[in-house]
């Protein structure tokens, strides 16, 4: 087991183009510093987000997955975020069933002007993930990857 202090969480964030992605841009423009743990994947709407992307990321050993959606009522596509909320309402329970800490999955509402909120949320989430510890899938994912690599070489 690694000590929590030298463990840096690995977070994948699926961000809606119109809110969280722009909000994160705004955080960048304002030089708001945050832990270097977040990779952002751009989607046009949180409604495009499928559970399998989150599962794939967690399966690969990501310590946290975030969906960044508009506030309810603010969706660029009228109601895509509401559909995403409904689609992911039981996702935490689902990953818990699979033996994963439900906090590894987060659904945030961050508007395009809330770079500061986004930064704060990330700081809090990182410290929480440090308490939870690394995703136990990491080793398995590494082994699987090596196997795949060897198979390709042969």
């Amino acid at each position: 087991m690694v000590k929590n202090s030298d463990f840096e969480p690995y977070i994948v964030c699926f961000a809606c183009n119109w809110c969280t992605y722009t909000g994160s841009d705004q955080a960048g423009v304002s030089r708001m510093q945050r832990p270097a743990d977040v990779r952002i994947i751009r989607l046009m709407c949180s409604g495009r987000m499928e559970p399998r992307y989150a599962i794939e990321a967690l399966k690969n050993g990501a310590d946290g997955v975030i969906i960044g959606a508009c506030h309810l009522g603010d969706c660029h596509y009228l109601e895509g975020n509401e559909k995403a909320v409904r689609r992911f309402s039981v996702f935490n329970k689902f990953i818990e069933e699979y033996g994963m800490n439900p906090k590894r999955f987060q659904f945030w509402h961050i508007s395009a002007s809330e770079g500061a909120e986004f930064t704060e949320h990330i700081k809090e989430y990182v410290s929480e993930l440090k308490k939870i510890g690394p995703n136990s899938r990491k080793k398995i994912a590494a082994k699987e990857f090596k196997k795949l690599e060897e198979a390709l070489i042969q």
Partner: peptide, 17 residues
Amino acid sequence: ILSEVRALKPWENYIIK
């Protein structure tokens, strides 16, 4: 989108450490 997710190797640094 899956290829983007799969391009990431969240375990890499952790295993090296």
